[in-house]
Design a protein around this nucleic acid. Structure first.
Lengths: 168, 168
DNA sequence: CCAACATGGGTGATGTGTCAACTATTCCGG
DNA sequence: CCGGAATAGTTGACACATCACCCATGTTGG
């Protein structure tokens, strides 16, 4: 996922390849993305026995009344597919971090509910994880760089959400 | 992977939480990272029947004499673990994109070799993929933003590679 | 020469994400 | 009130990444 754009030959059509600066930025970005994720995941797992995905789910549950959310609302909020949520909730349920509950008002629906065990897990995990994000990312960045990162990310996300029909 | 840092209460220790700007940047970054990856992967798969990982391997192989590399050199270059490479090469071999070859000079060793089919696959896939990276990412960014992204990424990667022993 | 160790690489189990297909309920027009 | 469409959620098959462990070959000190 890192040397992606060394490839610059062999195709004769008029493809708009990346210029040198863009190539460098893209490779550096891919590498940061891959390794930062790997590192955070590994340490979170080792320290707290949670994956980043577990963490995201638990965070959202602590942030919602009664620690109860409808499954698809959780999915929308995390920008996950419904099947991903479903599988993941199943696995977390097995570990006792959450439990499912039927919804009275809509027979199709289900709630995901934070268990005490889940709450303890996230409260134990969060400080260390945040500290690590700070250390690996933000302590190395100026305020302006943080602002630019936010701006870039937001712009790309916007582009992604508008460009969902185009044939690519 | 996106609402990670709404969590700001419930812990009384003196944890250095993220400030508002950092939280926003972190969430936006996580979301960009997740969705950009998902989108590029999905389209690459749909258009060319390759994953990002396949692509990365094939790119490296086109970039090396005879399209032949030792397995661990490939791993080091992509910053992958050896078992990841091994599994992945196995799957790519089944699909005819690469093949393995024994190494005479070192009986333990093995080469990964690009097949004609693999070369055709990467040459067919690359232009569209690059075009999409441009469209989704670089066409939305000023030159300065690209430079900042590269700088940020590089600095975080450096931090990651130096901070490999610390207890997190 | 040989025992210990390092190195190159593979394997199987497990957790995870995606896609397509499925079930069950609810909604909505006639 | 009934039949079809939409909605909520689950399931199974598959690709993928990681971990721990394994085997074979090479290397090195005695």
């Amino acid at each position: 996922m890192c040397q992606l754009f060394r490839y610059t030959g062999g195709v004769t059509q008029e493809t708009r390849w990346l210029d040198a600066g863009q190539q460098q930025a893209w490779r550096a970005y891919l590498r940061m993305q891959g390794e930062l994720n790997a590192r955070l995941s590994r340490d979170l797992q080792a320290n707290s026995d949670l994956s980043m995905a577990d963490f995201a789910v638990l965070v959202h549950l602590t942030d919602v009344p009664d620690g109860r959310v409808r499954v698809l609302e959780l999915a929308r909020n995390l920008h996950w597919e419904k099947s991903r949520i479903s599988h993941h909730i199943g696995r977390m349920e097995k570990r006792g971090l959450v439990r499912r509950e039927n919804c009275r008002s809509d027979g199709r629906g289900a709630f995901v509910v934070l268990t005490d065990e889940g709450r303890e897990a996230i409260e134990a995990a969060a400080p260390r994880h945040v500290e690590q994000v700070r250390e690996l990312m933000f302590d190395n960045l100026t305020d302006e760089e943080v602002a630019v990162l936010a701006r870039i990310s937001q712009r790309v996300v916007d582009k992604l959400t508008t460009a969902c029909d185009e044939p690519a």
